[in-house]
Design a protein around this nucleic acid. Structure first.
Lengths: 341, 341
DNA sequence: TTGTATGCGTTATCAT
DNA sequence: ATGATAACGCATACAA
């Protein structure tokens, strides 16, 4: 079996020999800078093709202090929302000549820091940090690497850019939709309260109530433990609230998983969706179409989120000027209405 | 804003100066090889900590011809099955000190080849190639990089290892399950026929029929265009077959998306699932639990698939010996029964 | 237009 | 036990 180690890759030096020019000239031809005659260009390119030369990016990176690689930190790539974001990012960055190193952090701060050190050692040109628990502290975690935080507040806004879906508006939108449909006894199901996005969605919920002259009944705020967000587990928590005598005619779940658990709870408790209680989730998970009733949900503009994030990062990398509004952008959310309302 | 370029990272050389030893000694201490006194070790380590030194892996890679990076080629990371596989791989490889470069190929041969060149230039230590259309040809695509193909046959078995779920057995299992439930008029919905996994699942279907004395009616093989695998599109194709007068009492869909489309078609056509027609899918997508009726499906052992693949690749990288059975492994599949049968 | 020489940060060889 | 030196492949400043 062919072993990777015994390969003898050809180098610029060798191409230079074969085409009777200096390595410098070969380099100039390859990168199309400096000046050289058309005749030389053709001769060199011919040799390159014939010998199937391929650039050694490791050497190039060392020399140029630039790796053409972006590190992407994400809590869990198997999550539908995250993997879609990463997909978009990868495609966009690929088109710009960058590769992506993927890092599953499990929201584990320790793993996160370890990865950060490794990525810095690999000289990544930039960092895309998606979600995660705490605020992201660029000073404690000693990375000078250019960073764009998505759905996660950087502690030091001098050092990192912040892009986010407009979770607040999403929460507002969902809640007002329920209100418009006549709901009076509104509740919210929430988990991962320390997440920026959760906080914002909750804030939107509360503000919508206030704006419409409704009071936020604390008994109708169901908090789900971060480790128990499986639909079955959620169902039990929600059922408990139902059995405790809390009445609902509209529920906003801060994410779709919670919404599914809530729907199951309603079924079990004998409340019909949407007749007795209306439900709206968040993320527009592919599952939404399949549940019965199908689930209304707030949809994030994943394409835009990924594109804007990458664009800003590339701007940083190319040390282009940026307006202060660019350094902190909100991507609008929209609501997809289905049977559950 | 801090710019990545003006950082002045400290090097082994500088650590050497600060601790009054040579760079060579510092390197030896860091990598804990060679010999050095305990006193030296402590002094060097102290300086390293105090100055927050971090290894430059790019330089290390150039020198050692080893990048501690694995390239992962995957058709579409936003697919639930693929992203789960990648998640497991990344976790496992991280624990072994490797990073993962993710490459979405869209099953586009051109992009695939371009990526392969880039990865080789980045000196990745190995390649994990998941699925994809054609057989993977290590000679045409001139990569000497150590490769493990998952669910995709390498053309030259000398140059690459092949790991796969047992799709054949999965197809067999699904079909026999339907037969045991009394189905006589069995059909299959299939897309991506050129995929190794699809072929195998189909083969399992046919063999199961034959083994049970049933004939495979070609009219009950519904082929879906690769570009029209959305449930709604699938539904139309399946409905057409129904309207053409083809009768079914059991359907094996080679993946869950097709199964969902098929279920919708049954609903529209007035056939009850599972009373009139029983359905089994493949992949055990999270969606299976949510559809109504919930969908039975063949489940791949993702953990095992990822772990075995990584283990083999690491063995290749460390040029460990391998038995010929190791070079071509099948991971067992199982069936998850739900309401649809 | 082209060549020479140097250095990026590291490890490995060969001394001492 | 430790140091001097070369080499990995490339880009660039400077010279010609």
């Amino acid at each position: 079996m062919m072993n990777g180690n015994d390969e003898n890759k050809i180098s610029i030096k060798r191409i230079a020999e074969l085409s009777g020019v200096s390595p410098a000239t070969v380099s100039r031809v390859i990168n199309n800078n400096g000046r050289f005659s058309e005749k030389t260009r053709r001769r060199v390119m011919k040799v390159i093709r014939e010998n199937n030369y391929g650039m050694n990016y490791v050497a190039k990176s060392l020399r140029m202090k630039k790796s053409f690689t972006i590190g992407v930190l994400v809590p869990d790539i198997s999550n539908a929302f995250f993997s879609s974001v990463v997909l978009r990012m990868e495609k966009y960055l690929y088109s710009k000549g960058y590769s992506v190193i993927i890092c599953n952090t499990d929201r584990d701060e320790h793993k996160e820091m370890a990865y950060l050190r490794t990525l810095e050692g690999k000289m990544v040109d930039g960092l895309l940090i998606i979600s995660g628990d705490q605020e992201f502290d660029t000073s404690v975690i000693q990375t000078q690497t250019l960073t764009v935080c998505i759905d996660r507040k950087p502690k030091n806004t001098e050092n990192a850019v912040f892009i986010s879906s407009d979770h607040y508006h999403g929460g507002l939108l969902a809640t007002e939709t329920l209100i418009k449909q006549g709901c009076k006894k509104l509740g919210i199901i929430i988990s991962h309260e320390n997440l920026y996005s959760s906080k914002e969605r909750l804030r939107g919920f509360k503000d919508a109530l206030e704006k419409n002259g409704l009071t936020c009944n604390p008994n109708r705020i169901i908090k789900i433990n971060d480790k128990e967000t499986k639909p079955e587990e959620v169902k039990l928590h929600v059922l408990k609230s139902f059995r405790d005598g809390n009445l609902y005619d509209g529920i906003f779940a801060v994410n779709d998983r919670l919404a599914f658990g809530t729907m199951k709870a309603c079924q079990d408790f004998g409340w019909k969706v949407p007749e007795n209680v209306k439900i709206i989730g968040f993320d527009d998970d592919p599952l939404c179409t399949y549940s019965s009733p199908s689930l209304s949900s707030v949809k994030q503009d994943i394409d835009q989120l990924a594109k804007v994030s990458c664009d800003i990062l590339l701007k940083l990398i190319n040390s282009e000027m940026m307006t202060s509004t660019e350094k902190c952008q909100m991507i609008p959310t929209s609501i997809i209405l289905r049977e559950s309302v």
